[in-house]
Simulated assay, not measured.
Amino acid sequence: MSALEDRIDEIRAQGRAALIGYLPVGYPDVDTSIAAVVAMVEAGVDIVEVGPPYSDPMMDGPVIQHAAATALERGVRVDDTFRAVRAAADAGAQALVMSYCNLMLSRGYDRFAADLRAAGGVGVITPDLTPDTGQEWIDAARAHEVDTIFLAAPSTTRERMHLTVGASRGFVYATSLMGVTGERASVGDAAAQVVAAARDAGAARVCVGLGVSTGAQAAQVATYADGVIVGSAFVKALGDGGDLAALKAKVAELAAGVRGDA
């Protein structure tokens, strides 16, 4: 059992889902993004995903693409990611990184995993790395007790679902489609089907990211998932002006949703 798994189980024992919040480090600037991470935890986020900005964020929607471009223009560095991880951990959240593979590879998998653990982080979500091509990363992560979190989508075959579940530690990241991220007008039932398939394949913990942006949507997803992952809605609330009050208000709305108070 990892610290992340323990935390999800503890939250599940409370009769609710975890609220997992994503923010890109460096947006609108490094110091504000770190303050925003802390603000999210204070407002009700249980698990933080820190995103190191990447020059070609092919799986991110326009809100996060804009944030990443802004951060890169202002000189964000990979080391700033670990500053944000430390801030999240010190604020009392379990801290993850969501990173594209090339960024990790350029630093070196072993060094990336070691730096994450040194900063108090517990896991990495790799949206563009699959278990069958990621053994080098899995080995490095295991050596440093870092959870490896892989994605599953409606297109994931039964065979690949078993592979994904077997390689994942912490949780399986279920999405309603394998494509760009962003807010959705409605939740639909595709993600619930992915969660069910992951559980059938042996997953003990499945969290869902599909563009949730309202408390009502969070409440709906929380009925079948162990965690509700929110990114674009939080980035949009923070905005170019670094509006921490607006961010905390949006977090509070989503936190009420996963707690059944929306």
Results as ranks from 00 to 15, higher is better:
residue 96 L to C: 13
residue 155 S to K: 08
residue 220 Q to Y: 07
residue 55 S to W: 11
residue 96 L to T: 10
residue 91 A to K: 11
residue 81 T to V: 13
residue 104 M to A: 15
residue 89 A to Q: 12
residue 84 A to I: 05
residue 178 M to L: 15
residue 262 A to N: 14
residue 157 T to I: 05
residue 259 R to H: 08
residue 232 S to E: 00
residue 85 V to R: 04
residue 116 L to C: 02
residue 74 R to G: 00
residue 193 Q to I: 10
residue 142 R to K: 13
residue 139 D to L: 00
residue 180 V to H: 14
residue 16 R to M: 14
residue 68 A to P: 07
residue 68 A to W: 03
residue 51 G to K: 02
residue 113 A to H: 05
residue 53 P to K: 08
residue 258 V to P: 09
residue 195 V to I: 08
residue 112 F to G: 01
residue 7 R to V: 04
residue 81 T to S: 14
residue 230 V to K: 06
residue 143 A to E: 11
residue 243 D to N: 12
residue 241 G to H: 01
residue 161 M to R: 11
residue 101 C to L: 15
residue 183 E to D: 08
residue 72 L to P: 09
residue 40 M to S: 06
residue 155 S to C: 12
residue 23 L to V: 05
residue 108 G to M: 09
residue 251 V to C: 12
residue 106 S to I: 14
residue 80 D to M: 06
residue 71 A to E: 07
residue 111 R to N: 14
residue 19 L to H: 12
residue 57 P to I: 00
residue 255 A to D: 10
residue 58 M to K: 03
residue 126 T to C: 13
residue 147 D to A: 13
residue 76 V to D: 04
residue 239 G to R: 01
residue 229 I to H: 04
residue 102 N to K: 15
residue 105 L to S: 06
residue 82 F to C: 09
residue 39 A to Q: 04
residue 44 G to A: 07
residue 210 L to N: 00
residue 77 R to Y: 04
residue 246 A to V: 09
residue 77 R to S: 12
residue 195 V to Q: 05
residue 97 V to A: 09
residue 194 V to A: 13
residue 193 Q to S: 15
residue 200 D to Q: 13
residue 147 D to P: 06
residue 28 P to Q: 10
residue 114 A to R: 04
residue 154 P to F: 07
residue 257 G to W: 03
residue 220 Q to S: 00
residue 118 A to T: 13
residue 165 V to D: 06
residue 61 G to H: 00
residue 149 I to F: 00
residue 228 V to F: 04
residue 257 G to Q: 06
residue 195 V to D: 05
residue 164 T to I: 15
residue 43 A to Q: 08
residue 166 G to H: 11
residue 84 A to V: 11
residue 228 V to H: 06
residue 240 D to C: 05
residue 50 V to Q: 02
residue 80 D to Q: 09
residue 180 V to Y: 04
residue 183 E to Q: 14
residue 110 D to F: 08
residue 244 L to Q: 03
residue 224 Y to P: 02
residue 31 D to K: 14
residue 151 L to E: 11
residue 108 G to I: 12
residue 223 T to W: 00
residue 192 A to T: 01
residue 162 H to Y: 07
residue 163 L to H: 11
residue 198 A to G: 06
residue 65 Q to H: 09
residue 45 V to T: 12
residue 33 S to K: 13
residue 260 G to I: 08
residue 189 D to K: 04
residue 222 A to N: 06
residue 143 A to D: 01
residue 237 A to L: 03
residue 170 G to N: 00
residue 30 V to L: 09
residue 180 V to N: 11
residue 46 D to K: 05
